[in-house]
Amino acid sequence: MPQRSEQKSEPIAIPAALQSAHDGFLRHMRLERSRSEHTLRAYSSDITNLLTYAIPRGAQTLEGIDLPLLRTWLMTLQESGLARTTLSRRSASIRSFLAWALRENLIDTNPAIRLQSPKREQRLPHVLQSNQIQRMFDAPPRTTNQGNADTQEPTAEERALADRNTLILELLYATAIRVGELVSLDIDSLDLDRRTLRVIGKGDKERTVPFGQPALNALDNWLRRSRPTLRNEHSGPALLLGKRGKRLDARQAREVVSKALADLGDTAARGPHALRHSAATHLLDRGADLRAVQEILGHSSLATTQLYTHVSVERLKESYQRAHPRA
């Protein structure tokens, strides 16, 4: 029986008025709101998704996008099996887009004001136990395939990369900064005397974050003996360097953390955010003030930081269930 050839749908041409609004909104978010390229790509994808749904249904300008159309668009996405987090993000993007369009007098009313989207699932972040954190730091970072690495003396480059990997882990857990913030650090971001970092976070907001003695020791090893080994004419002021001497990128840092966590063997946690979650939770478990933790994390809303108090309560309940005779 002959197979049917798959028909590829032709891309929908976006009218000039809608394309202009799309581009103007992204320009506003980039220049005036200092949104990251990652966030801008998400906005662009979400708005384009709505426009390609709306155009065949008669919308040639923003005035053609009304509340019933927005509701059927969301319903169609929901029926396609899209995750609630993605649905929530897409509807939030459209609300921001149409609110901007109203301010720019591109529309007379904003239909998205009454648009309700599925609430995000409030998943509690995975948190490492203190003994897992300790084991992670006790294990020497590996930078080569196992092979004969145990019998050969490491090269100067391998030692430098091992020191860098240790520093990545120490700084992420000590400061609870995001991986993008970590790889953006320059040498002059450090104040070694005060043991603080100057971090540029989301929206180009600057904050100062403290770190402890273990991170200071890792910084000293890296700056004194290992960064000079990797440094070259491409290094510039970057604190963390890749194997070729250029600024370390976020993907490489994620790989270092994921490998260290995988080597623990008893956790499903992966990636830098696991260390950020764990640091925040451990601070609150040990009595840190919620607003101080908010400042360290760089959260604009205290409600976001309060998620970590929920984590602590869950851990408290688990301990109670295990230990209390009448639990």
Rank of each mutant, 00 (worst) to 15 (best):
residue 135 R to V: 00
residue 81 G to F: 04
residue 81 G to K: 00
residue 78 Q to P: 01
residue 140 P to D: 08
residue 94 I to V: 15
residue 124 L to R: 04
residue 120 R to K: 13
residue 133 I to E: 05
residue 123 R to C: 01
residue 98 L to S: 02
residue 139 A to Y: 11
residue 90 R to L: 00
residue 85 T to I: 06
residue 124 L to W: 11
residue 140 P to T: 12
residue 85 T to R: 14
residue 95 R to V: 03
residue 137 F to D: 07
residue 80 S to P: 03
residue 123 R to M: 07
residue 103 R to H: 12
residue 116 Q to R: 15
residue 95 R to G: 00
residue 101 A to N: 04
residue 124 L to A: 05
residue 102 L to N: 02
residue 128 L to N: 10
residue 104 E to L: 01
residue 103 R to C: 02
residue 112 A to Q: 06
residue 134 Q to A: 14
residue 94 I to T: 12
residue 142 R to T: 14
residue 133 I to Y: 02
residue 84 R to L: 03
residue 129 Q to S: 13
residue 113 I to D: 14
residue 77 L to D: 02
residue 111 P to W: 01
residue 124 L to G: 10
residue 112 A to N: 05
residue 80 S to F: 01
residue 107 I to T: 11
residue 76 T to A: 15
residue 100 W to L: 00
residue 121 E to M: 08
residue 98 L to H: 05
residue 107 I to Q: 00
residue 120 R to E: 15
residue 100 W to H: 09
residue 74 L to P: 04
residue 83 A to Q: 09
residue 90 R to K: 15
residue 154 P to L: 05
residue 88 S to C: 09
residue 104 E to F: 03
residue 115 L to W: 08
residue 121 E to I: 10
residue 93 S to E: 03
residue 120 R to W: 04
residue 86 T to W: 01
residue 85 T to S: 15
residue 95 R to Y: 01
residue 142 R to A: 15
residue 74 L to V: 09
residue 110 N to W: 00
residue 144 T to F: 05
residue 134 Q to D: 15
residue 122 Q to W: 08
residue 80 S to R: 13
residue 123 R to I: 04
residue 79 E to S: 13
residue 100 W to D: 04
residue 103 R to L: 09
residue 124 L to F: 09
residue 128 L to G: 03
residue 123 R to K: 15
residue 119 K to Y: 06
residue 135 R to W: 05
residue 111 P to F: 06
residue 151 T to R: 11
residue 137 F to V: 07
residue 147 G to I: 13
residue 91 S to P: 01
residue 85 T to E: 08
residue 151 T to W: 11
residue 145 N to R: 12
residue 122 Q to S: 12
residue 104 E to D: 09
residue 151 T to S: 13
residue 84 R to M: 02
residue 116 Q to D: 10
residue 88 S to F: 00
residue 93 S to M: 05
residue 82 L to E: 02
residue 142 R to V: 15
residue 145 N to H: 11
residue 116 Q to E: 13
residue 121 E to N: 12
residue 113 I to Y: 07
residue 78 Q to D: 14
residue 137 F to Q: 07
residue 93 S to K: 00
residue 125 P to T: 05
residue 147 G to T: 13
residue 139 A to T: 15
residue 103 R to P: 04
residue 91 S to Q: 08
residue 108 D to V: 10
residue 101 A to D: 08
residue 104 E to S: 04
residue 127 V to G: 05
residue 135 R to N: 11
residue 103 R to K: 14
residue 90 R to Q: 14
residue 120 R to D: 10
residue 127 V to E: 07
residue 149 A to F: 10
residue 145 N to T: 14
residue 124 L to M: 07
residue 127 V to W: 06
residue 128 L to T: 11
residue 80 S to C: 02
residue 116 Q to W: 07
residue 155 T to K: 02
residue 145 N to K: 12
residue 145 N to Q: 14
residue 96 S to D: 08
residue 95 R to M: 00
residue 119 K to G: 13
residue 140 P to A: 07
residue 129 Q to L: 12
residue 92 A to C: 05
residue 88 S to Y: 00
residue 122 Q to M: 08
residue 87 L to I: 02
residue 127 V to F: 10
